[in-house]
């Protein structure tokens, strides 16, 4: 199998063997990709490029796609512990790439322990609240029409359109499942953990904060504020992208990540190796 070909498997993850659907591919330094609230839909072109940079592991979060959702794994906090277990099972400290919800999960992991992280890439991440009590940090997707949401999430909203009648039922079920799973994690507190902001000083890992210029859900000003609150972060914007640069600018996003990875120390792949539980 060519190194950059992606494959999908369902594997037990973490101490309790939670069964997750995982997309994998590539060789080299481990890269953990954490998807946004729409799941892994539309992510394949980006993941193929990412797989040229290292060994990609892209789990579907509990409740998304074909992943189980155990009754005790219903919050971003729960998932952060699950993925800290997952990092332990990888060959070397990983570069963790999180988009939106995935960035929130990555931050929740990093404040607990960045020991198994070589670098952190936050792409249009949510998770922290900065504003006053009557000003929301993020546009409320649960109070907007679908047309308005598409406009806010995409530089080119036509990309968001789904031809429902011509989409296979299995794919529609994934869409319905992902929407429910996203809501389970993000309804309230909306897209953030109230105490995460006061813990950001613990994110002791080189961090690249990348932001779609046209993000109308979490605007670039929010991204800059997040980067400023992190001890080792840089901030860059990506033109021609909204909230999901991995979908709208996969080539450019991968190039930015490649440049960031080139600044990281060469990994010691032999250290701390563990077999991934099967």
């Amino acid at each position: 199998m060519p190194a950059d070909t992606l494959s999908t498997a369902v594997r037990p993850v973490g101490g309790k063997g939670t069964r997750l659907e995982i997309v994998e591919g590539g060789t080299g330094r481990p890269i953990l990709f954490l998807h946004p609230g729409i799941g892994l839909r539309g992510a394949t072109p980006f993941l193929e490029r990412l797989a040229k940079l290292g060994r990609v592991t892209a789990p579907a979060h509990p409740g998304f796609h074909g992943s189980d959702v155990p009754p005790d794994t219903t919050s971003v906090d729960d998932i952060s512990y699950l993925y800290l277990d997952l990092l332990e099972s990888l060959e070397a400290p990983a570069v963790v790439v999180g988009v939106s919800l995935g960035g929130w999960i990555a931050l929740e992991m990093a404040v607990k322990s960045a020991r198994r992280m070589a670098g952190l890439v936050l792409v249009d991440s949510v998770g922290v609240r900065f504003n006053t009590r009557t000003v929301q940090d993020f546009a409320d997707i649960y109070a907007l029409s679908s047309a308005e949401i598409d406009k806010r999430l995409y530089h080119d909203p036509s990309l968001a359109r789904i031809d429902y009648p011509n989409t296979p039922p299995a794919e529609l079920e994934v869409i319905a499942r992902n929407r429910e799973a996203e809501t389970r994690l993000s309804w309230s507190p909306y897209l953030h953990s109230p105490h995460l902001g006061q813990r950001l000083h613990r994110v002791d890992v080189p961090t690249s904060v990348l932001w779609g210029e046209s993000d109308g859900l979490a605007p670039p000003a929010y991204g800059k504020r997040l980067a400023d609150a992190l001890p080792r972060a840089t901030f860059e914007t990506i033109p021609g992208a909204g909230h999901f640069p991995h979908i709208e600018q996969p080539e450019e996003l991968a190039a930015r990540i490649a440049r960031f990875m080139a600044t990281l120390p060469v990994p010691d792949v032999a250290s701390g190796r563990k077999e991934m539980s099967r």
């Binding site: 029409s145 679908s146 429902y164 079920e173 319905a176 429910e180 809501t183």
Partner: peptide, 24 residues
């Protein structure tokens, strides 16, 4: 308003899948 009609998770995944199949 459309946004409030069917918040995700209110209906079961099976019912929401059917609703998407009958979209429009």
């Amino acid at each position: 308003s459309e946004a409030f009609r069917n918040p995700p998770g209110y209906m079961s995944v099976a019912d929401n899948t059917r609703a998407l199949m009958n979209f429009g």
